[in-house]
């Protein structure tokens, strides 16, 4: 279980990025975090990943307090961030601490197959499309079998078709081993398609305004009236957070 307990973050220049955020994500749950830019959602994810440290509060995964990156936690960035001097297979195996080379190769092959990139194992990153590069990044994070996988707007740089395809793909991958997913996105539809719960964040300072439980069965139909209805609710919540912020400032 991922627990975020009263986390706050104040930057050195005095800006309060996050204020007293508490949330619990159950094992195997997909948790979406939506909000406009600057609401602190990426900051929150970086704190959970251990890349940054909070000014106050505690993050823990399965009882382990997270103060720096931990093998329980995987992170997929907004950009693929592949190492250009390693081919696709070596990129996938980059974080895999498996001393047995035979086993390591096997796990890399497995991960590549899961993301449909077996044929591209020996390609350089520069030879991949945006979608293929992000799949590689996904495989690199999944191959280490993290308990919690954090995704920071992972598909936002992709075109609409590739994005929809990768969302479906992510669901399939999740369904195989059911890791906990925390997905930060500004795409409400994406959150709705994937998440069990969605937190709407409010900026200045960043905090969680409202949390929605999405009880629609998977695979979700993006055009169904139920989908539309929840989408409208979340949009309304986002708008009110925007408006209330404008009034406050």
């Amino acid at each position: 279980m991922l627990q975020v307990n009263a986390i706050s973050k104040i930057y050195l220049n005095g800006t309060q990025a996050l204020d007293n955020i508490t949330l619990k994500v159950e094992d195997g749950e997909i948790f979406g975090i939506v909000g406009g830019s600057g609401c602190g959602k990426s900051t929150l994810l970086r704190l959970i990943s251990g890349l940054d440290t909070a000014t106050g509060g505690i993050v823990s995964v399965d009882g382990v307090t997270i103060i720096k990156p931990h093998p329980y936690i995987g992170l997929v960035f907004q950009e693929p961030r592949l190492l250009p001097w390693l081919n696709v297979a070596d990129n996938v195996g980059f974080g895999l601490n498996e001393p047995n080379t035979e086993l390591k190769k096997q796990r890399i092959d497995e991960a590549l197959e899961k993301v449909g990139l077996s044929r591209f194992a020996t390609y350089w990153p520069k030879e991949l499309s945006g979608g293929q590069a992000q799949r590689t990044a996904l495989a690199r994070a999944l191959v280490t079998r993290p308990h919690v996988l954090l995704l920071d707007e992972p598909f936002s740089a992709l075109d609409a078709f590739t994005r929809a395809e990768l969302q479906e793909h992510l669901l399939e991958l999740w369904n195989e081993s059911r890791p906990t997913l925390v997905l930060v996105t500004h795409d409400i539809e994406e959150a709705l398609f994937l998440a069990d719960r969605i937190a709407v964040m409010r900026p200045y300072p960043g905090r969680i305004a409202e949390t929605f439980r999405i009880n629609l069965p998977r695979r979700r139909d993006r055009l169904s009236p139920e989908f539309e209805k929840v989408k409208r609710d979340i949009l309304r919540s986002l708008n009110t957070t925007l408006i209330s912020h404008k009034i406050a400032s």
Partner: peptide
């Protein structure tokens, strides 16, 4: 920095 962070996330 972004690539260095990949190294950090893998400890």
């Amino acid at each position: 920095r972004k690539i260095v962070e990949v190294g950090r996330i893998f400890r």
